[in-house]
Nucleic acid binder design. Structure first.
Lengths: 221, 221
DNA sequence: GCCACGCCTTGATATTCATCAAACACTTCA
DNA sequence: TGAAGTGTTTGATGAATATCAAGGCGTGGC
């Protein structure tokens, strides 16, 4: 069984209002801007879920932890993504900043109770995007090999970061491992293997160049 | 890598109106009643998603298939459950009856476009239930051992079938395997092992008695 | 510029689970 | 009642991945 050494956040985040700001992109999120440093907690499992967030800069991981410390990262959120929509009243995951991160925080009630169909529909779309990604994730975790998982992770990240061939990953190997249901060693070995096969080029551990994106995509099965 | 022999549905389902009927339980679903026999398809991946369904009797599996036939069951739906809510316009999964099954089918637009907040809110709740279950599923697939997966499956099924200690499973071992990301042999061995440990009693392969539900729940981690 | 720390990679070995193969049970149908 | 078929269990073996253990690289602090 694999164990993930639990990373504890250095200090809990307190939503301090910096400034009121209009949302920069697709979804309208009126709220306060929040600055977080690396590994800082956005919210914790069990807390009341009264806010949603949009990533402006940086990145966030949402995860759950088993009683013995094994961690499963549900998803990463990148600039432009909205996260923090919960099925119920309380947080079912913990969210932490991967790097120094800027978020916009808005009261959940602002959007949920709003009967203005435009907003309600966008919120629906966001929740459904989470559902879709979660189902894709389950397929990967249940039925793909380590090679396929890593390849599909890279392809997915490339698409989300704007269809680039040069990835600047905001997360550590441990984060990737906990997202893909693998160990850090397996992730590392698999990346090395992909490099030896000529599919990618590692340039420092956070920077990955996709040399054969097409072949990589085919590897995902 | 594990292979799931693809089960092809014998005949596609055509939504024949049998009778208009009020929904029997919690969620209001006005639509036609549909009768399906074992392994019959409710809808297939790629089709337009214009209906949602409620299980009246029997059970349904929703799954996705990789290019080489590996199958991942996203979820099972039991009497009282509503399924078929999709993130987008088209079906991302295939749904099939596990046994002889009765469903109520309703046009999706009936509920989605309805600005009556009661209906909209219930639909939201249903979608969020799917999200929650999908995330739980990802945790299981990513970070639990075969033992833990089977134990949590049994505990979950017991809860959903009405907190009973005597399970009458509507699915085969292959279905369970494809849900838990295991092989049929591993599922079988694990169940045998649980029986030898005194936690469960197998009585015919579809019938399982939970002798120590508490211990079983602890096994899930 | 050097040291120290954290993260990453690599190697050796262990374990879990998949695969291959065969026998066994339950069901259906004659 | 018996035979065939389907699904399940069990056994033997192998492959994929985890675990344990070092060593290397990069980065930030002094």
């Amino acid at each position: 069984m694999q164990m993930s050494p639990m990373v504890t956040a250095p200090r809990p985040y307190v939503p301090t209002a910096t400034m009121r700001t209009p949302a920069p992109e697709a979804i309208r999120l009126i709220g306060v801007t929040v600055h977080l440093s690396r590994d800082q907690e956005v919210f914790g499992e069990g807390e009341p879920a009264d806010q949603v967030f949009k990533v402006v800069r940086g990145a966030v991981r949402c995860f759950r932890v088993l009683s013995d410390g094994r961690r499963q990262i549900c998803d990463f959120y990148l600039p432009g993504d909205v996260f923090g929509i919960e099925p119920g009243q309380d947080r079912r995951t913990t969210a932490e900043a991967l790097t120094d991160t800027v978020l916009v925080a808005a009261r959940r009630s602002t959007v949920v109770e709003d009967e203005d169909s435009g907003t309600a529909r966008r919120l629906w779309a966001l929740a459904m995007a989470d559902l879709q990604r979660s189902q894709d994730h389950a397929l990967t975790l249940g039925r793909r090999s380590a090679n396929e998982r890593v390849a599909s992770f890279l392809v997915d990240m490339a698409a989300r970061l704007g269809d680039v061939d040069n990835l600047e990953l905001p997360m550590t190997r441990q984060d990737i491992a906990d997202y893909l249901g693998l160990t850090i060693e397996t992730v590392s070995r698999t990346l090395t293997h992909l490099q030896v096969s000529g599919l990618i080029k590692l340039a420092g551990c956070r920077s990955i160049h996709l040399r054969k994106p097409r072949a990589l995509a085919e590897l995902c099965a």
